[in-house]
Design a protein around this nucleic acid. Structure first.
Length: 511
RNA sequence: GCGGGUGUAGCUCAGUGGUAGAGCGUCACGUUGCCAACGUGAAUGUCGGGCGUUCGAAUCGCCUCACCCGCUCCA
């Protein structure tokens, strides 16, 4: 089904009603950019992350040239030595306060603005100009002269920088491209990193950051892993963990959240093999998303143009996004995962900043060569993946009681099976509960004997439970139950003792 | 950040200055023999929040928060 016929409002409502996703701190009015997972959503997201971990780290992946892909895991901290973020380029380059002009819609770096005013006058207008731009300065002087209605000598004019300008003064300031006073906003920090302070004393030395990506924890631990795990290039380090970005505009449900979870791999390679491994990971990751049920037109692979490449990937083998057509992006797409050749930018940056330099190079025994390995980075969003799965699974169906069902891949389904007595009497509950207890040892299951059978099926449809087993009056004598399949609503009778192996097979696991 | 819209029960919504409502869902009991059946009953509200106007505010004003849409932004 195309996403046009699915409404995000309806999906959001179901997420709340059935306990997939709640707004964070909802009883206090919520908080912009933060979302919680309820009981079903938690299971769903865990299943997604576990599939990723199993498929990428635990199970053997056949790499290029029929070599098994070597992969190990890592769990690094959210708060790291702030130097990490200096080295990575996250501090510094993106830390400049910006001022917007509401009138002219221009945006200025605050430290690039100069301010002119009549000496001694604290109530008149102030005129801003762009520092170093003579035209802009001349214009500001002209505007000031016009305002005081006479020509001014240099020593009658006060000049100031943003540091000297108070909020009140900004309120009477005319922007460089504006006519009216008061159109400039307060200087705003555009650094997307969350800050915190480590230790009880809140001084500048204690400043630290919540990581904006899990990747740097991997780079910072590259040598630890190398020295402790007998891995050799090419190999990968995988990590799942929270990351934090102070997004300017959180939007679209959980899609752009300020706190989110990443599933990242940094795959370390010799530079000569970059193209081969880039292509490998691009295709492997694309196929993985397909394998969990995002097949069809709603999933696409998009190679980036060179113009949109990040600073660390300008001259690499390539960057691509794996994108999903969400109802709120339709007909466009939203990014689920980026696969990037990050060159050796990060390893080199950390080697430089920690002071060890060339000594941090990797020694390749086979090639008898010292070098900084390049990386291919498949970086996926766990929350975005979960959201895509929710959107894809959402299937309106007027013919059934619930009017909608969640068509999850059985491996992702929060509840794998439900067991019902057809009627809560005549020994049926006892038989059903016994089966339930047996299935529960290996699968997340539910037992429900309340209300009508139709209502119970309907509830399981909305939870996306793929199979329901119903014990009826005959079950006591023929030792069979009816299995009801979520997607087709088809029913089939089978022996009770066949149920565990049936379910195990459907879940793709050993019984 | 800018502009527009919305906010009342778990969900969908009615309620334009005078007692806080409906449908669905939830729960209990009875009934029920395969798809939200039926009957009876029950619980559930900071009317997003604060301040104000008023004898009286879900309703009017101001501020604020959240969500949605369009711009902007997204290393």
């Amino acid at each position: 089904m195309s996403s046009e016929s699915k409404s995000m409002d309806q999906i959001t409502a179901l997420c709340k009603r059935r306990g997939f996703v709640f707004q964070s701190s909802q009883i206090y009015g919520g908080i912009n950019g933060f979302w919680d997972y309820g009981p079903l959503g938690t299971e769903l997201k865990r299943n997604l992350k576990e599939l990723w971990w199993n498929d990428m780290v635990h199970r053997s992946l056949a790499g290029p040239a029929d070599r098994d892909v070597e992969m190990v895991g890592l769990d690094s901290t959210i708060i790291m030595n702030p130097s990490v973020w200096v080295a990575s380029g996250h501090v510094g380059g993106f830390n400049d306060p910006m001022i917007d002009c509401r009138e002219s819609k221009n945006r200025y770096r605050a430290d690039h603005l100069g301010f002119l005013g009549l000496k001694g006058d604290t109530t008149g207008q102030i005129f801003a100009y762009i520092d170093g731009d003579d035209d802009s300065l001349a214009q500001a002087r002209k505007k000031l002269s016009k305002y005081v209605k006479r020509e001014l000598d240099d020593d009658e004019i006060d000049t100031a920088t943003i540091a000297d300008i108070s909020t009140e003064e900004l309120g009477i300031t005319v922007g460089p491209h504006a006519k009216q006073a008061g159109s400039l906003t307060e200087p705003r920090q555009f650094n997307l990193m969350f800050e915190t302070f480590v230790g009880a004393v809140r001084d500048e030395d204690a400043r630290a950051y919540l990581r904006p990506e899990t990747a740097q924890g991997i780079f910072a631990n590259f040598h630890n892993v190398l020295d402790s795990s007998r891995v050799r290039v090419p190999f990968g380090i995988a990590q799942i963990g929270k990351a934090f970005r102070n997004e300017v505009t959180p939007r679209n449900f959980t899609f752009r959240s300020r706190e989110f979870e990443q599933m990242e791999i940094e795959f370390f390679i010799h530079p000569d093999e970059a193209e081969q491994w880039y292509a490998y990971w691009r295709d492997t990751r694309f196929e993985w998303w397909k394998s969990i049920g995002l097949e069809g037109d709603n999933l696409q692979l998009r190679e980036h143009d060179t113009s949109e490449l990040a600073h660390y990937a300008k001259e690499g083998a390539g960057v691509c996004d794996i994108e999903y057509r969400f109802p709120f992006t339709d007909p466009g797409f939203g990014e689920l995962e980026g696969v990037a050749h990050r060159s050796n930018y990060d390893l080199k940056a950390h080697a430089d900043h920690c002071g060890k330099g060339e000594k941090m190079r990797y020694f390749d025994q086979e090639r008898n060569e010292h070098y900084f390995p390049h990386v291919i980075e498949p970086s996926a969003g766990a929350d975005r993946g979960t959201l895509a799965v929710l959107c894809e699974a959402y299937t309106p169906d007027d013919s059934r009681a619930s009017k909608v069902y969640m068509k999850f891949d059985p491996r992702l389904a929060p509840i794998k099976a439900a067991v019902f007595p057809l009627v809560a009497k005549d020994g049926m509950p006892e038989v059903a509960e016994k089966l339930y207890r047996q299935l529960r040892r290996h699968h997340v299951c539910q037992f429900d004997h309340k209300q009508s059978i139709g209502k119970r099926y309907a509830r399981m449809d909305e939870a996306g439970t793929p199979y329901c087993f119903t014990v009826d009056g005959e079950s006591l004598s023929d030792h069979c139950v009816t299995v009801r399949e979520r997607d087709t609503q088809a029913q089939q009778r089978m022996a009770i003792d066949q149920v565990p192996s049936f379910l195990a097979e459907k879940m793709g696991s050993e019984p």
